[in-house]
Write a protein that binds this DNA or RNA. Structure first.
Lengths: 127, 127
DNA sequence: ATAGTTATTGAGAATTGTTGTCATTGTGGT
DNA sequence: ACCACAATGACAACAATTCTCAATAACTAT
């Protein structure tokens, strides 16, 4: 055999699929524990790392915080992120910026890009 | 007194000023040790954290890696970053994208943004 | 179904990155 | 030159992640 499907893996992928926003390992762990009580943190780390290596999920970095992860097919539907500095949550945003090639120094090869808007979300803004 | 200027702090700020690209704490530590032998890693962490809190330097996040830091006056000269996935270095890129407001969901407040291009640098690209 | 093989798990040890503690040092005011 | 105390450096403590390994459970072939 090469690979075995398990309850744990299904739960983790389901959590990421239902999330709608990038989640930290801890968040995935908590959510997955609801479906599979007693699931180990190691398993969540292991599975997320494997999925990331296989390109099934993408990592989203926020300064001073652990990475968040989201399904790659979501990431592929080109979009970006909004980081609320008040509640520290990250939201997905649709739409994209163009004309990035003109920013590229010569000799550099562009494979992708990541845009993060920073501010306050609807819940946290005074508005 | 409120604050005392020291050799260590000067060295750390000098390193960041001369760098020309965002540097990790370890990189700053190594570079500063050339000027101030025996400088402590704690001091570098402490100083960088203080500078970040004061807004003198800005943190740049890269998935799966420790944050990098760069002088805020550089960050203020609006620019963005290029992350070479081959050598894992981060470069500053001049220029900026506009029209971000149209990406913003209603109720959200935009304070800033961070764009990271991903690919291979001139040194690592096959070109 | 049943049993055998082995990929996967969960618990905890080990690593790595970062912050906290505290006696000692050295800056800046007098 | 002296003094008060902010800053340092060594190391402990903590946090996030990876590694290790015996026990478990998914798949295969009977």
């Amino acid at each position: 055999m090469e690979s075995r499907r398990t309850r744990q893996q299904d739960a983790i992928e389901a959590v990421l699929a239902d999330a709608g926003r990038p989640m930290s390992v801890q968040e995935v762990f908590s959510a997955a524990a609801a479906t599979v009580p007693g699931i180990g943190l190691s398993t969540v780390y292991r599975t997320i790392r494997k999925l990331a290596e296989q390109g099934e999920i993408a990592a989203v970095a926020v300064p001073g915080q652990p990475d968040r992860y989201e399904l790659a097919h979501v990431a592929a539907t080109h979009h970006h992120h909004f980081h609320c500095t008040a509640c520290d949550r990250v939201f997905d945003i649709r739409g994209c910026v163009g004309g990035l090639d003109r920013l590229l120094p010569s000799g550099f090869e562009l494979h992708g890009h990541e845009l993060t808007l920073v501010g306050a979300c609807d819940h946290c803004s005074g508005t």
